[in-house]
């Protein structure tokens, strides 16, 4: 097998392990689904009547970001128990594969939450067009790529639940700008390009630096 096939098979094995754990314990995805729905309902009461659709788009993004945070906060929980992360660090696979596997697993959870959130949003508040959906997809990639790395950092700290949102939110601001812009601006393509660039820059950075975050 070529090096790339091996790398891909490591990534898939690691991501599949996370999905299997989630299917068994069901402690992250149901929470994310319920959270995103509850948040949208809360927003109905937080938005004064007659507010423009544009404002509702902003709230959609707040709901998505905080739902992602909920999933990210638990992302490395299986690795913390029993020192499984040390087990992965010892294995001869490329360490960036650990990051990529986790990113994919979190992306699957977040996508599932969005599959509930977007139709619900369209039903409760405002229609969602194709450009807006593309914005959600691109921003989700960025959220998971950066988020899984920051969550690994936070997992090494004492106040991990508190510290992750502090680390993550300043980095999520450009994603929110891109996502909201793709939803409400007539020039959606500009925002999609911007989101694509964000994903590229930060995915490469996270891929290259992950090893340093998990080793001593």
């Amino acid at each position: 097998m070529s090096a790339l096939t091996l790398y891909a098979s490591d990534v898939v094995a690691l991501a599949r392990k996370d999905l299997r754990l989630e299917l068994r314990a069901r402690d992250t995805l149901p929470a994310m689904l319920l959270f995103v729905l509850s948040t949208l309902v809360v927003f109905h009461f937080a938005l004064p009547t007659g507010t423009a659709d544009d404002a509702a788009y902003g709230l959609l993004w707040i709901a998505l970001i905080f739902t992602a945070l909920l999933g990210l906060a638990r992302a490395w929980a299986p690795e913390r128990e029993g020192g499984a992360l040390d087990g992965l660090v010892l294995a001869p696979c490329d360490r960036s594969a650990i990051w990529l596997g986790k990113t994919l697993a979190v992306l699957v959870f977040l996508t599932a939450a969005e599959l509930v959130a977007l139709p619900a949003f369209a039903l409760f508040f405002a229609p969602v067009d194709l450009v807006a959906v593309a914005g959600v997809v691109l921003a989700s990639i960025g959220i998971c790529a950066v988020g899984s790395l920051l969550a690994a950092m936070a997992a090494a700290s004492r106040g991990r639940e508190v510290i992750l949102p502090l680390l993550f939110l300043p980095l999520a601001i450009p994603l929110i700008v891109g996502g909201v812009g793709a939803g409400i601006s007539p020039e959606g393509a500009t925002y999609l390009t911007f989101l694509g660039l964000y994903d590229l820059v930060f995915a490469i950075l996270a891929w290259a630096t992950f090893e340093y975050v998990i080793t001593e």
Partner: peptide, 14 residues
């Protein structure tokens, strides 16, 4: 390298 440490280095829920 094979390593056995204080922790089992395996996934608890697998």
């Amino acid at each position: 390298l094979g390593f056995v440490g204080h922790e089992p280095l395996v996934y608890q829920e697998l």
